[in-house]
Design a protein around this nucleic acid. Sequence first.
DNA 1: TCCGGTTTGTGGACGATGTCCACTAACAAG
DNA 2: CTTGTTAGTGGACATCGTCCACAAACCGGA
Lengths: 225, 225
Amino acid sequence: MLSTKLSSVTIDGSTGAATGARRRRPRGAVREGLVAAGLELARAGGPDAVVLREAVRMVGVVPNAAYRHFANRDELLAAVCTAAMRELAARMAAGVGRVRGKHGDPAAARRRLQAIGRAYLEFARQEPGLFATAFAVPNQHAYGAPGGGAGPYPLPLDQLRAVLDELADAGVLSRRRRAGIEYPIWSAVHGLAVLTGQGPLRDAPDATRRHIEDVTSSFIEAGLA
Amino acid sequence: MLSTKLSSVTIDGSTGAATGARRRRPRGAVREGLVAAGLELARAGGPDAVVLREAVRMVGVVPNAAYRHFANRDELLAAVCTAAMRELAARMAAGVGRVRGKHGDPAAARRRLQAIGRAYLEFARQEPGLFATAFAVPNQHAYGAPGGGAGPYPLPLDQLRAVLDELADAGVLSRRRRAGIEYPIWSAVHGLAVLTGQGPLRDAPDATRRHIEDVTSSFIEAGLA
DNA sequence: TCCGGTTTGTGGACGATGTCCACTAACAAG
DNA sequence: CTTGTTAGTGGACATCGTCCACAAACCGGA
């Protein structure tokens, strides 16, 4: 098991009385705490590691308390997945934000596309648990709408679209080729992340990994022209 | 729960005595039965549905009997994953085998590449549980070696390589472009399968799905030339 | 033929998990 | 202060993976 003790997500430094300590937390604190705890569990072990009883333990509350905020474990997991997806989106936004260059500059647009892909793959490598969780939304629960009421950051697909639109504006990508090209590009990057992450290529040495990334990058660039 | 009763994987029409029925199965029968049962469970519900106690129930044996053949549940799951991967490989081989045309004919080679991709995506769509299971080999258990002692069919990557080699032989794909191109192509197809299967694109209507597939197909073809 | 060792299945148990029901303390409004 | 709602507690249950001790079936030598 090697259950390393994760950072506690305790809400307040309670008096910790022995029995029936019925201290009540501020509004929404338990729910947020559960999601935060679930996120830590997911970070360490992927979606399957998001176990309700462990999360409530971290928050310092009895198992049933969770059922005041989520209908069942799947609903908690869905909330955690959304949070994980938001973190991925944030990293992508940060990565693309670091690229200098005016909108409309072809070279800058190209670099932004690369930055998006790199951020995606970096997140998948550095946070395999969160990455898997972001895409493990349980059936019967929906992914955020494309417009995105999902959070402060646009979803990955929308960020990719924005950059591709910029490439089209800059003339790097013809209007004809632009149509729908977000899908093969996203697929290629996502597939790469999955195959080298938990998939059959997960044991490939770093050199091979880099080679695969380079080839894929060239392949995508070639697909633009 | 809606636990529909799956087809039983009983081994022999036993006498079914009440207690201590210690009938012993033919060599390896229990192990094979467990894998078959696990495969059914995986087909219906993915890797998480491969629950040891349910598998042994289907085989008609007590839970502990499984531990004579597998060290733990993960090892059983690993065997099931291998079986699922073998089934994917078989479908791919069948798909590519249906394509007529001599080795060396450029048009035939192109069609074979398409057939491989189509078989892959078709399997992912028709057997989502098995597809997910094939790629859900638990950590600490290895995927089959590239050469493939894994089974009667070459692994997906090797089949793809064979077709790409044929494309190179036929002159469709220059030697220079051939190097490593299996990775972006595999990634694109796999990513597509994952994203439209259980991923964020899983609720896309069929028309959109087809459009995405077409665009991806064109993208890959463009990457050859 | 008997006999001792190895396989393989059984019985019973344990801890952990998700979930349900009834109860009650804390809070908000009148 | 009363009253109704909300949010956390306590206890229980079925199910799951796994461990230990035991015994029946099988096998190869004497």
